[in-house]
């Protein structure tokens, strides 16, 4: 698939003057979604930063149809919309645009149910690794050691790997993506739109106020996550599991940048000792080893 910036739609699917924080990573992803599928989708948005960034009615900052829904309901509401469209002969995709809290915590039963019954839904979970909308509380997707307002000395538990769980469940299409790699995310959205059944994209989306870094660094933080190996770009496409560039080269640990490059620019990790950073580095390697088993 060709991806020339100058051939992408110029229509603004995310409008200026919205309520997102300066430097919001999620909004970069939402713009890519608009460019890829803007005219073919209805968005289902559970309680999240995405409900707030729309701004104040009767205005909305999103130039796509948006149905705001209760926190835990998005995957099921999307199922209903998708079934209704099929019954009524409407072309288009029910797309969930949900944060990590609604996906891996409160709404996980609905996500898992939609995956199991293979509902025809594209589910995008933008992962800013905490409950940002309510003020940076720990979620099941917060990484170990990260400071949040409810883990003042750092989270003690592992991040839930929801994408891997859903791939193991056998959903037709599961992928990870990262807002620093819009081309990869765009292609994955287009691919998801071609496949019937349940599609899940786990989008890494840094949050400057929540992660305590300069809003100018959103894309850099996201890119460092891939280059240090913390975030792995992969896709599971109807039974075939593969790495996607540039993560392919980072399977080789020696090619990865030192983890400290990623850790040191985020205030949420400021309390970590060098020893703890080395410990996380081992955990990152362990994650790669897990992924490697799927690649075999």
């Amino acid at each position: 698939m060709t991806f020339r910036l100058d051939q992408l739609p110029k229509k603004k699917y995310v409008l200026p003057g919205n309520a997102a924080c300066a430097g919001c990573g999620m909004m970069i992803g939402l713009r890519v979604l608009g460019m890829a599928l803007g005219e073919e989708v209805v968005l289902i948005v559970p309680a999240s930063c995405s409900s707030v960034v729309q701004g104040l009615a009767p205005k909305s900052s999103i130039a796509m149809p948006v149905l705001n829904v209760p926190f835990a309901s998005a995957a099921a509401v999307a199922t209903g919309i998708s079934e209704a469209f099929k019954a009524l002969g409407v072309r288009g995709h029910a797309v969930v645009w949900a944060g990590d809290g609604s996906t891996v915590d409160i709404g996980f039963a609905a996500v898992s149910g939609a995956a199991e019954r293979n509902s025809d839904v594209i589910y995008v979970m933008y992962d800013n690794e905490a409950y940002m909308n309510t003020g940076i509380q720990r979620s099941g997707s917060t990484p170990k050691y990260a400071w949040t307002s409810t883990t003042p000395v750092g989270k003690r538990e592992q991040k839930k790997d929801v994408a891997l769980m859903l791939a193991v469940q056998g959903a037709p299409y599961v992928a990870t993506a990262n807002i620093a790699y819009p081309q990869d995310f765009y292609r994955k959205l287009k691919r998801a739109a071609e496949i019937p059944g349940f599609k899940f994209i786990h989008l890494y989306a840094p949050c400057p106020p929540g992660w305590r870094f300069d809003p100018a660094k959103t894309v850099e933080v996201a890119r460092l996550a891939v280059e240090t190996g913390v975030w792995i770009l992969w896709e599971y496409d109807r039974g075939a599991f593969r790495l996607n560039p540039p993560s392919t080269i980072y399977r080789d640990r020696a090619k990865r940048r030192p983890l400290a490059d990623y850790i040191k620019i985020q205030g949420r990790f400021a309390h970590l000792s060098d020893e703890e950073v080395r410990f996380i580095e081992e955990e990152v390697e362990a994650k790669w080893q897990r992924i490697a088993k799927f690649l075999e």
Partner: peptide, 17 residues
Amino acid sequence: LPLASPALASAGVTGTW
């Protein structure tokens, strides 16, 4: 239903931020 439509400045003139 109180619907909303796409518009600039849904959260105001954000250049002031």
